Simulated scan of single mutants.
Amino acid sequence: MAARRDITAWRPRVPGVTEVFHAHFTEYAYPMHVHESWTLLIVDDGAVRYDLDRHEHGTPHDTVSLLPPHVPHNGSPVTPHGFRKRVLYLDSTVLDDSLIGPAVDGPDLRDPLLRRRVGQVHAALARPGDELEAESRLLFVGERLREYLRPRIGTAAARERRDPVLARRLRELLDERLVPGLSLEDAAALLHAHPAHLVRAFTRAYGIAPHQYLTSRRVGRARRLLLDGLPPGEVAASAGFYDQAHLTRHFRKLVGVTPGRYRTGAAGERGDRQGRVIRPGAGSGS
């Protein structure tokens, strides 16, 4: 089957939703990366397999997958036909960080009612002028997700995710210096640790190397700026990349399309529903 990468992306005027992302991918696999927002995913066609916190998961048709922020994951199609997915990126006003551990323990929720409600949110978000309906429906989705996750808090706390102090402090430094960046030498001096020990501690705690974490956070910032309508050349510098080529290389690797095509898919009247489907054509792969 010819490679296909079609996306639609926009930022709605609905509190709690940082981005809506619809995609149809065939021959594309996401590498390990992180998001700063919650990722609420439903797959309409095909299936996705992914690793989260070193455990393999999947997305059968009736599943709602909830991937927590700051926890590395990847993703790839299960069949040659690829997958068609719809994603809501949600901020901490919908789900707070205390629920990250429970979400790691069980990210795939087989709940037909929840899945139907998530689909209703997407349908409302796709209709300009129906923001109040989308906001109302999202409240019920958030409520049901919290019902699932809160009973698990005690178990997650007892298990306690790998988050030693040194790794956490390095992550905080990387977050603080997202755009200017941070050398391992400077980080080692600030944290009073050997650079190699820093890398090992961070990777052991989060399952991703410091440079991969920083790059995926920068790509996330680039997505927001592109949704704001900024051109890729300006976004590159504002997101911490060396130049536009540097941005393009990593953006295409983590999102599946180039920044220019992503921005085209997010074009339209800003403030209303933004998004126009990108149809690069069979075999474009970019």
Rank of each mutant, 00 (worst) to 15 (best):
M1I: 12
A2L: 09
R13A: 08
V17S: 08
F21K: 01
H22W: 05
A23Y: 03
H24Y: 13
A29L: 06
P31V: 01
H33A: 06
V34I: 13
T39P: 00
V43D: 01
G46K: 07
G46R: 07
A47P: 04
R49A: 14
R49T: 12
D51E: 15
H55D: 06
E56D: 10
H57M: 12
P60S: 13
H61L: 12
T63A: 15
T63P: 02
L66Y: 03
P72W: 00
H73G: 00
H73K: 10
G75S: 01
V78C: 07
T79E: 09
P80W: 12
H81R: 13
H81F: 10
L88F: 13
L90G: 00
L90H: 04
S92H: 05
S92L: 05
S92P: 06
T93M: 08
D97L: 13
S98A: 15
L99E: 01
A103F: 04
L109T: 06
D111A: 12
D111Q: 11
L113S: 09
L113D: 09
R117Q: 14
R117D: 15
V118P: 00
V118S: 00
V121S: 02
H122D: 07
E131A: 14
E133K: 11
R137M: 14
E143D: 12
L145H: 03
R146N: 11
E147M: 09
P151W: 09
I153T: 14
I153N: 02
T155Y: 12
T155D: 08
A156Q: 04
A157Y: 08
A158H: 12
E160V: 08
E160T: 14
R162V: 06
A167Q: 01
A167G: 05
R168S: 07
R168M: 05
R169H: 07
L170Q: 03
L170E: 08
L178H: 12
P180Y: 02
S183F: 11
S183V: 08
E185A: 04
A188N: 10
L190I: 10
L191C: 05
A193N: 07
H194G: 08
H194N: 08
P195A: 03
R200L: 10
A201Q: 08
T203A: 06
R204Y: 11
A205Y: 07
A205F: 07
G207F: 10
I208V: 15
A209T: 07
P210R: 06
R217S: 12
R218H: 09
R218P: 04
G220T: 06
A222C: 12
R223W: 01
L226N: 04
E234I: 08
E234N: 08
A236Q: 05
A237R: 14
G240Y: 01
Y242F: 09
D243Y: 02
D243E: 10
Q244S: 06
A245M: 03
A245D: 10
H246Q: 06
R249K: 13
V255C: 05
T264F: 05
E269N: 09
R270C: 00
D272W: 12
V277K: 10
V277P: 14
G281N: 10
G281P: 04
G283L: 02
G283D: 09
G285L: 03
S286H: 14
S286D: 12
